[in-house]
Design a protein around this nucleic acid. Sequence first.
DNA 1: CCTACCGATCGGTAGG
DNA 2: CCTACCGATCGGTAGG
Lengths: 209, 209
Amino acid sequence: MKIRVAQKPPDAYQHGDLREALIDAGVKLLTEGGLAQLSLRAAAQLAGVSHGAPYRHYRDKAALVAAIAERGFRTLTKAMRDELERSGARKAGRKLTALAVGYVAFATAHPAYLQLIFGSGLSKEDAPESLRAAGEEAYLVLRDVVEAGIRAGELRKGDTDEVALACWSLVHGLSMLFIHGAVPKPETAKLERALTERVVLLLGEGIEV
Amino acid sequence: MKIRVAQKPPDAYQHGDLREALIDAGVKLLTEGGLAQLSLRAAAQLAGVSHGAPYRHYRDKAALVAAIAERGFRTLTKAMRDELERSGARKAGRKLTALAVGYVAFATAHPAYLQLIFGSGLSKEDAPESLRAAGEEAYLVLRDVVEAGIRAGELRKGDTDEVALACWSLVHGLSMLFIHGAVPKPETAKLERALTERVVLLLGEGIEV
DNA sequence: CCTACCGATCGGTAGG
DNA sequence: CCTACCGATCGGTAGG
């Protein structure tokens, strides 16, 4: 005889929005165990439903993955916007620094999102439209700042997308190196922020004589 | 009665070096199907041996993954050194550009390596010593160029590791964005190279006025 | 939304 | 280095 242990989380969703609850569960799995731990079945269990239930809301696993990635983009966009506002920056250089700090903080706080967005088989072609849009929105936060900076004469003249690409690459790369542990990760959020600011400053001023 | 179809590749390894053959197989799996397709069993099949055989050479799956990642680092190091030599660059700015071109070319030619190195659970702590050393060697190629550049007065004075971190972040981020398709990937290697050079130039000269 | 089931794959081990 | 086996997990579907 098998003892049946209650595995349903005490506060699983209650008839409410299983669709959202599954995303929550997926994020949790991702955060705690990485990409390999993300499965529809485990998400269903975490949400307190049977493993057949998710198919009422998602056609297949890829659909849930896309939904999680979409939320990731939205969270990232918000993190950047919040930091931008919080900083009260008015000049392009300061604004870009704020965006960078927001991006890196998001990345190190939720490494699973970046792993999912950039690490899974989600390539741009077969991504659902809403996911593509969420990614585009995040990019536009950066692009707008760059464009305004060039127009205001605070950034050197140049192709807006190319300058934005340089900023994005720098910050994304820094985030990935932090996440992977390739760089000794600063021990406090404050130190992380300071290092991020110095690295961004290098892009601002240039490293050559 | 079951028809037995020959699944052994015609030119699988022959009693030679199964250890190396399994790495080859793993790289192939990774390249063709991404991280999710990498399994010890599939690698064994590709190498033409039974699925129990790999355990004679690798304690577990993680050991094979580490071996593949190590080869990835060595290939990357070679790609950077080759491009550096090929360029004939003598000044730091040109050298850094060459390293960047080599890095990005490696990344887009072998996206699976970067996915494995930076995307799997290989964190710095539990990595075998040889893997850590291979990663360090790749970093030193960059660091040496930066250090020499600062000493020669071709790069602004500053913390060597911090400047190197900025370079690495920029190039790594650019590579990841290319791989993921977040940026419209240049259609030819020549265009990719040109874009990489322009982005690196932005770091060299700075984007602020 | 559940139970029961399918085929497939996996990591790993025993025993030779 | 092979065969045979283990327990586990997975995505997905049928049928209710």
